[in-house]
Simulated scan of single mutants.
Amino acid sequence: MSHTALIPSHRKPRQSASKTALRAGVAGGVLSTIAVAGAAGPAQAEPVTQTIEMPTITAGLSTTVAASAEATQQVALDLETQANQDAAAATAAKAAKKAKAEAVRKAEAKKKAEAAAKAEAKAKAEAAERASRASRSTERTTLSAPSGSSSSSGSSVSTASAPASSSASGSAASVVSFVQMQVGDAYVSGGTGPNSWDCSGLVQAAFRTVGVDLPRVSQSQSTAGTQVGLGNLQPGDILYWGGAGSAYHVGVYVGGGQFVGAQNSSTGVVQKSLDYDPPSGAVRVL
Rank of each mutant, 00 (worst) to 15 (best):
A164K: 13
D213G: 01
S153W: 11
S161M: 01
S153N: 14
S165T: 15
T141I: 14
D213C: 00
A173W: 00
S166R: 12
G236D: 04
G191K: 04
A186R: 15
G154N: 14
R140M: 10
G154C: 10
A173L: 05
T192V: 11
G211L: 09
R216W: 11
M181E: 15
G148C: 08
Q227W: 09
Q180C: 03
G170R: 03
Q180N: 12
R140D: 12
S161V: 03
Q204P: 00
V176D: 01
G154K: 13
S147L: 12
S155N: 14
D237A: 07
G170N: 03
A186W: 05
L202W: 04
A224L: 06
D198S: 04
V210K: 05
L214M: 06
G148S: 14
S169M: 03
R216S: 11
L143D: 01
A164H: 12
S153C: 10
T159K: 08
A160M: 10
G201W: 02
V212Y: 12
T209A: 04
V188M: 07
S200Q: 07
G154W: 12
G201A: 07
G184E: 08
G229E: 07
S165A: 15
F178V: 01
C199W: 06
T209E: 10
G225W: 07
S196A: 15
A168P: 08
N195P: 00
D237R: 11
L143K: 04
S196E: 15
A186K: 15
G229N: 14
Q180T: 10
S220V: 02
S135I: 00
L233Y: 09
T141N: 13
D198V: 01
W197Y: 14
R208E: 14
D237V: 03
F207I: 02
C199V: 05
R140V: 08
Q180L: 09
N195I: 03
G154M: 11
S222L: 07
G190Q: 09
N232I: 03
A173Y: 00
S151W: 09
A134P: 00
S137L: 11
N195C: 02
G231S: 15
G231F: 01
S152V: 09
G229S: 15
Q204C: 01
V175T: 08
A164L: 09
S135P: 00
P235R: 11
G225E: 06
Q221C: 05
T223G: 06
T142V: 14
T142P: 04
S158A: 12
V183M: 09
F178D: 02
A168H: 09
V183G: 07
G211R: 13
Q221T: 03
V176A: 02
S165P: 02
F178M: 04
S222M: 09
L230E: 04
S166P: 11
V175H: 10
P146N: 13
G148Q: 12
T159D: 02
A186N: 13
V228N: 02
G231R: 13
V228R: 08
V157Y: 05
S222Q: 10
Q180D: 10
A160H: 14
A172L: 08
L202F: 05
P215W: 11
S150T: 09
G170F: 02
S218V: 04
C199S: 13
G184I: 03
D198K: 05
Q204F: 00
E139K: 07
S156T: 13
G211Y: 10
A134R: 14
T159S: 15
R216K: 13
S135R: 06
S196K: 13
